[in-house]
Design a protein around this nucleic acid. Sequence first.
DNA 1: CTGAAAGCGCTTACAG
DNA 2: CTGAAAGCGCTTACAG
Lengths: 327, 327
Amino acid sequence: MKPKIEDVAKLAGVSRTTVSRVLNNRGYISNETREKVQKAMEELNYFPNDVARSLFNKRSNLIGLILPTTSNPFFGELSFYLENICASFGYKVLLCNSLNQIDKEEKYLEMLLRNQVDGIIVGTHNRGILNYKKQGLAVVAIDRYLSETIPVVCSDNYEGGKIATKLLISNGCNHIVLIDGIGELETPARLRRKAYLNVMEKHGKIPKIYEIPGVFDPNSHLAIIRKVFSEYPEVDGVFATNDLFAASFINEAKRRGKNVPSDIKVVGYDGTETAQTLLPELTTIKQPIEAIAKAAVEILLKEIEGEFIDFPLETKLPIKLIKGVTA
Amino acid sequence: MKPKIEDVAKLAGVSRTTVSRVLNNRGYISNETREKVQKAMEELNYFPNDVARSLFNKRSNLIGLILPTTSNPFFGELSFYLENICASFGYKVLLCNSLNQIDKEEKYLEMLLRNQVDGIIVGTHNRGILNYKKQGLAVVAIDRYLSETIPVVCSDNYEGGKIATKLLISNGCNHIVLIDGIGELETPARLRRKAYLNVMEKHGKIPKIYEIPGVFDPNSHLAIIRKVFSEYPEVDGVFATNDLFAASFINEAKRRGKNVPSDIKVVGYDGTETAQTLLPELTTIKQPIEAIAKAAVEILLKEIEGEFIDFPLETKLPIKLIKGVTA
DNA sequence: CTGAAAGCGCTTACAG
DNA sequence: CTGAAAGCGCTTACAG
């Protein structure tokens, strides 16, 4: 049904080898032959079967992308950039939304390996990936330490946490709460918390951390946020480690008749385009999402193309404070 | 390097055929043999090469997903559901962010065909797809009419537009503007506009339509929104065909000292989880994103699995008014 | 119950 | 400059 290389060869009156050669622009072919072949390809509306090519070449030009969920604006934007940048280099992206569930991640991982992906970009917390590094698979992590040999791309989380906390302090807050995701291992994003703790200590203030369990389920934020108000009513500053947490908090504060920023100041994190459009009032730390994507793809391609070891194990990109009105 | 079926066969002391059989659970195999083979597979940490399988089976279990951009919360959430539902049926998703650019769409389309996808889910405006329907490829469109034979899944756009416009009118608005994306052909989403026009006419009100060109670039909203204020200062109601337009409008209104809703009432569209979290005040028409995704995948799989013609050409899912405080 | 052979659609040495 | 042959890693009739 679909034309194959043999059909083209027959129509053009040449061998399959020759057709393959014009397809790949390899070896010598007379112009006459090339034209005959090209005409035949057009006539048949032929395009090559990349599955067959991958099988032979042991190269799929496929990249696996594992992240929690594209529903989240940070990962939605990140996946857009990652995919588009991959496409610009001729790579295709297999999307995996793992919701940070380990069983899902393992299934996705196996799926990607079965599909012979050339590399994997990981934005989830799981450490299971590391088992596969041995298999010679190219891997790059975004904001996650997966193993000593897997390069990481992240933004300057410590600096971001520092700026956010300092801003709240210099704006006169005394009871500053950190609203963070549930305690993941030592991810770079954890440095936001570390910076908060350090700055608080340095200024002689008592830190208070509240952890949201269902990080990617906005409906789960409320219970914890209510706890902040009931347990720590004197709260007058909040550093939320992502903008959705910040928004949920602001919303609940309003519902309780608190004014932001006069009663409570709030700083978020991420600064996605979506959040900036929907909630431009929010003061937040903006991550350079496009730059992160670019760095991640470039490193991964270096790994894939085997350019020795001249890629950095950690790439830290600068963040930026976006001054809104909430802090 | 990577173990292949032959390695397993050798280790287990059987033929490749037999290994394949236990892999696929096909034909008769003695328990003894099966166990030997399974042991060998584990020992070698073997898993099959799906590229080779696809080549033989002429079945890739790959679905192409073409949409404007996962940066946009509607498509971010949609792609999450689509991918997860596909995964639950054993299908993998190749992500394509076309930004509605025709040249990109054509390239993506060719890429998908070369990769032998079993089907394509399309959420972009392009009509080029239709050329390929002949090739026997399964296609389903989300909110787009691509051709007479391609099934469409959408929410009840007309009803949504009607509810939104009526709400503004019943809330006392007299100068209601529609802020819409640039004039695409006859997409189902166009019915939002049609409903607006019909309802306005029925109530003897003058419609005013403003079109935003860079639909997926929030930075481009502002110019048009300013025009609304300068050209039509009496505006007291806005129906925005997506929540980001609505947010941009509200933001500019505030900047101009207008109060929403007392001076101007605003109704948005989409009601994504992200928008509901970041801007819960917004009154909007919520699309049933998960249901749309489910219907789309189910129809596509029916097409792929060739279940005759028992899938509907148009699937219209109900929308819901979310009462916020902006209208 | 098990295996040898052919073939999925390509590409690449190797000859000529 | 061009082609016949072998092979990428699988699976499926067909025999036995």
